[in-house]
Design a protein around this nucleic acid. Structure first.
Lengths: 146, 146
DNA sequence: ACTGAATTAATCGCCTGCGATTTAGTTTAA
DNA sequence: TTAAACTAAATCGCAGGCGATTAATTCAGT
């Protein structure tokens, strides 16, 4: 194994870790207006796409464990964004539904990605590089999440 | 979908967030043997490179706030990995030093990047793509961390 | 029909991660 | 020289994130 490749692991893993936190920081002021956090925003995005999903489906889409997602959903329920109820067909499952408030947030949220893209494009990273970045990460994710 | 842009921005942001967590999960079993966590490993890496740094320098290198790093360092002190003492030149600063135990871990840790790279190369992502990924992320980080 | 395996959420305990604030020490400028 | 501005670290409170375990329900094979 070449030394260069060894360095690469650290040079790659830390940037992913740092970039993740920095991106969340960029989202925060925008999400503050909706009084939600980034993980909560992700849950809403999943539900805006397809409402009424069981906890497990949401967890899988976000690659989170139930011990993260359960309290997260409880907080969202507390804020009146979603409702949770046991499935009648299979009582093991808890189905998550958007409330009116949760649905209404979608319109406000629709302006967030635009602001984010504008901010990132100020960085002069080429769109093409962002697309490649995305592809590489998704490839890595599909491998690591098995 | 009515709000198509809600999907688009997250095609990039979510993968970074997910990849970060998946990478940490990959590290975990390796770090467990050293009885440290990923953020603790990062602190050690900084100190192995240059020992005796003030808290702030470590925080800046890792792009973390003092309210994250202070308790993290306290836990590491508790485990006997580092020592903390006030600088005599400037009593505002706390200098962080590796203990013998902290220094000794470096050798064991040296095998970690190798294992990670091996794992990542199993994913058949080309080394060249990883290099590009790294470069894009670093560019983004340098922009966002200003 | 019955039992053991599998599935789904929830719970517990711990470690980040961060906004907001506080405390202590140092610098600066009137 | 001394009060205000600045800097470094710590503190507080809350929201993730996850390993390990538990409780409830369903499934599958006999």
């Amino acid at each position: 194994m070449k030394y260069e490749q060894l360095k690469l692991a650290n040079q790659l893993c830390f940037p992913v870790y740092a970039a993740s936190r920095l991106i969340t920081r960029e989202y925060q002021p925008l999400l503050d207006k909706l009084e939600i956090t980034y993980p909560q925003y992700l849950v809403l995005m999943v539900l805006w796409e397809k409402d009424g999903l069981p906890v497990n489906d949401i967890a899988k889409k976000l690659i989170l464990n139930t011990n993260t997602i359960t309290p997260l959903l409880k907080r969202m329920e507390q804020q009146g964004l979603i409702s949770r109820k046991r499935s009648e067909k299979d009582e093991r499952m808890v189905l998550v539904q958007l409330t009116k408030k949760g649905k209404r947030l979608q319109e406000k949220a629709s302006k967030i990605p635009e602001a984010l893209v504008k901010r990132l494009s100020d960085s002069k990273i080429k769109i093409n590089d962002l697309v490649k970045l995305k592809e590489s990460l998704n490839y890595m994710i599909s491998f690591l999440s098995k």
